[in-house]
Amino acid sequence: MKILVGYKRVVDYNVRIQVRPDGTGVVTDGVKLSPNPFDEIALEEALRLREKGLAEEVVVVAIAPADAQAHLRNGLAMGANRAIHVVADGPVQPLTAARVLLKLVEREQPGLVLLGKQAIDDDANQTGQMLAALWDRPQATFASKLELDGQVARVTREVDAGLETIEVDLPAVVTTDLRLNEPRFIKLPDIMKAKSKPLETVPMAELGAEAGDFLGHGPYAPPARRSKGVMVKDVAELVAALKAKGLV
């Protein structure tokens, strides 16, 4: 079986996000870019399935500007067999991403598509579900456990009520939650090895996916700040303050 993994490049989760003073976006010039953490979990899971003998090939895909080659090499260094770089001028919205991924799914015929449940830049949490809909295949979102048994995947999902388990026929789309696994660290020899792994570059327009960037964005603004409160010296002062506000 082949596994297709979505591997988005985003602003690193440690970067303190600043909105541009003119409100046209957030500052991305010169900030550290990293793989989306949820996508790293997706890739790790795919690699583990391959290591268990349940998959033969792991393909990482990014829809990203031309300068994202090093990002994809990173995915190859982590252990993917090959990479597909769909070159886009700028960010694409989830529906476009899903339509592009569908084109790749039709070409690659994977048995499983693993994606992060959301990207930590736009926090949309849509692409996996949209791909599953367009592909007319099952989805198992927010996965914290994934077991393959022949043509069926049994997935434990982190839902508000607790842990839900569903069974889906393959092929299917699974999106990953934080507790599915802990991604491995990349070792130096793997970085060297990744240099010779296949990395295919495809201009997005060549795939013939219909555009789906329907939402207008902007202006951007910083969030309303909570004002800093007061430090109390002991429990008695805290309780007095809460009682004065009628909270306890």
């Binding site: 919205q93 989830p94 529906l95 899903a98 926090d123 949309a124 949490n125 849509q126 692409t127 996996g128 579900q129 949209m130 791909l131 599953a132 809909a133 367009l134 989805q139 979102t141 927010f142 999902r157 982190e158 839902v159 508000d160 789906g212 960037d213 329907f214 939402l215």
Partner: peptide
């Protein structure tokens, strides 16, 4: 919620429209 996040994008894609999350 996890219910709506799971369901609504699938609906949006079936309708061929974007979703506001």
């Amino acid at each position: 919620t996890t219910f709506g996040k799971d369901l609504m994008p699938r609906v949006a894609a079936l309708l061929g429209v974007a979703q506001v999350s």
